[in-house]
Simulated scan of single mutants.
Amino acid sequence: MVKALIFDMDGTLFQTNLILEQALEGAFDVLRKNNLWDGDTPIETYREIMGVPLPVVWETLCPSHSLEVREKSNAIFHKKLIELIKNRRGSLYPDVEFVLEKLGADHELYIASNGQIEYLKSIIDTYSLDRFIKKVYSIQSIPSGQKSDLVKMIVSENQITTGAVIGDRLSDIMAAKENGLTAICVNFDFAQEEELKQADKVLDYFIELL
């Protein structure tokens, strides 16, 4: 029997909110300089949709822009995010390392994230999370771009028989339920009250996971 815990990254293990605004400002500054954006950076819009696939993010933030502009904006955004992470401007949530170490003693730990591979690697490397995490899976490895399909792949590849998905948004909850796993949500920065109602368990503090 393989017991596993599959974690979301942004807003679950990593406090993305600490670097999100600065990185997004950087991307929209470039758009403004090229006369492709007029007005404030839509930071609150991004907070509301946090957890959706990246193409949906940029379709939402820049609905009237071309695919090329969206892709370039995304590249600038991620370059800034990685720079901030490596400079330790972000942070893990309290007790994350302690909890992962404890749980890793009798569970296989994985990450399933909508984040890009290079972005996730920067967090793993900066905080040495490979001490605890068996493997990191990015949404980039799934053609459908759906978190449920990503978790399905993790379950299949690793012959997982029981466990849970720990995240903060509806996509994490559905990924758990559609794959026969327990849906645990953290009530952190990007969590939405209506979505939390669909989880099997809601945590206000990460250490409650123990």
Rank of each mutant, 00 (worst) to 15 (best):
I76E: 14
M50H: 08
P42Y: 04
Q116A: 13
I124K: 13
R131A: 04
D200Y: 09
G167A: 11
G26H: 12
E71I: 14
Y46K: 08
G51C: 01
N17W: 04
M9Y: 05
L181E: 05
L20D: 03
M174Y: 11
L120W: 05
Y93A: 12
M50A: 12
I6K: 04
A183R: 10
E68N: 11
D172S: 12
A75F: 07
L18S: 04
K135P: 05
T182S: 10
N74D: 11
E44F: 02
I117R: 15
L109V: 11
K72T: 12
S156Q: 13
L103N: 11
E48F: 05
I139C: 08
S113W: 06
I117H: 10
L181G: 08
S66R: 11
S138K: 09
V57R: 00
S122K: 03
M153A: 10
Q159S: 15
M50N: 10
L210Y: 12
K152T: 13
L67T: 06
Y127W: 15
L120E: 12
F14Y: 15
P53K: 01
A75S: 13
E71N: 08
N158R: 02
D200R: 09
I160V: 15
T161G: 15
L92D: 10
L196R: 10
A199N: 01
L129Y: 08
S113F: 12
L24Q: 09
G51L: 10
C62H: 04
G145T: 00
E101G: 11
F28A: 09
E83T: 12
E44T: 05
I85D: 07
S91H: 13
S148Y: 11
R70I: 09
Y93R: 07
T41K: 04
Q192I: 10
F98C: 09
E97G: 14
S141F: 03
E59D: 15
A175H: 07
D8N: 13
N34Q: 15
Q116S: 08
G115N: 11
K3P: 00
T161L: 14
F28M: 13
L103H: 12
D130N: 15
H107S: 12
L203Q: 05
S113N: 03
D38L: 13
A4N: 02
Y119R: 03
L203F: 05
K102C: 10
L31Y: 02
F206I: 07
Q22W: 02
Q159N: 13
Y137G: 01
S91I: 09
K33N: 12
E59Q: 15
K201M: 10
V99N: 04
P143A: 00
K121M: 02
E195G: 01
N158K: 06
P63K: 07
I154V: 09
K152I: 01
A183H: 07
N114L: 06
A27F: 06
L81I: 14
Y137L: 04
P94R: 10
K86S: 07
I207N: 08
R131I: 07
S122Q: 07
I82R: 14
N35T: 08
D149A: 03
S156T: 14
V136W: 03
T41P: 09
I43D: 01
F190W: 10
C62D: 02
